[in-house]
Write a protein that binds this DNA or RNA. Structure first.
Lengths: 157, 157
DNA sequence: ATTAATATGTTATATTATAACATTATTGCG
DNA sequence: CGCAATAATGTTATAATATAACATATTAAT
């Protein structure tokens, strides 16, 4: 089973549109404001399946909004993170869209070091084994950061 | 089985001494230079079971070496990382000593958000399940970053 | 001893992220 | 509606993390 389109060819506009629509619905449900800046930043994050750097978002924003500054971007990113709409890839200091923000989940990221694309897995086995093994030491987990680097199927060919 | 002393009381001088001795041997074997700066940085990294920030290492170094600068620290950290003597905790931008640099291994880190201490696990089950599940998508793993946040046994009491 | 390779010193700057305060927009309520 | 409270954005400055580039010193190999 392929959990993500990231490593397959697909019409990526569908990804972006679907992400925006989901975000709109979720923000409405949560009664939080999906403002134009927040939407635009989310669109920019979704521009590729590769994670994007905050200052690269800023560069893009500035093409449309000359007075954009770092806090504009970081505030939008914080909002999107808080509401589960994006993930931060810690080992890259970069951000990527979340595949299914509508449900809480623990993700694992497969980061292709050749094409830079990242696939989001939400594999319950991985989550559970980690919980199980950590519990053996008496540790109570609140958060898992799982980032896997390697080469995706496309780039092996 | 407890894989690390981090969350238990212990004579920590033993940890530091043992880490330095292992590093000396390994560097000799590998025919790389374990210089005074590199040794001192390794000692500072081992000062606690909590990861340390690069600029905190720099502050300590400067007490002994007034002309120490950022590159001094980052070069030593790079050397220690390259030779498997320390790990970088990506989600904290911080560095910690490696428990058994003498063998290649995939680690998982249990980061206590209360006491800031970090235990290094080297759990083969976790490693294998991740490999297995990633392989299902055709992904070839080269590196795993596994950082688990939560509360350690001591801090639950 | 001389050269090559490695390590360190030094200055500057790139990159990532936040603090602090001013202004504007939106919401809730009398 | 009009006003106050809250939330969001604008703006300037700076903190925190990390590297580039080039000079000097140390060590290793011949």
């Amino acid at each position: 089973m392929q959990h993500s389109q990231a490593f397959q060819t697909h019409n990526h506009n569908t990804c972006i549109n679907s992400a925006i629509v989901k975000a709109q619905h979720l923000c409405e449900q949560q009664n939080v404001r999906f403002t134009p800046i927040r939407q635009r930043v989310l669109e920019l994050v979704w521009a590729n399946h590769a994670p994007i750097l905050a200052y690269d978002i800023l560069k893009e924003l500035r093409l449309e909004k000359a007075n954009a500054e770092a806090p504009t971007v970081y505030r939008a990113l914080e909002f999107l993170l808080d509401n589960g709409l994006i993930h931060k890839i810690e080992s890259l200091n970069a951000y990527m869209g979340c595949n299914h923000p509508e449900q809480a989940h623990v993700s694992q990221f497969l980061i292709c070091t050749v094409c830079q694309q990242v696939a989001e897995l939400d594999n319950p086995k991985i989550k559970q084994v980690i919980e199980q093994q950590a519990l053996k030491t008496g540790f109570e987990i609140s958060e898992q950061t799982i980032e896997i680097k390697g080469v995706c199927p496309q780039c092996q060919a």
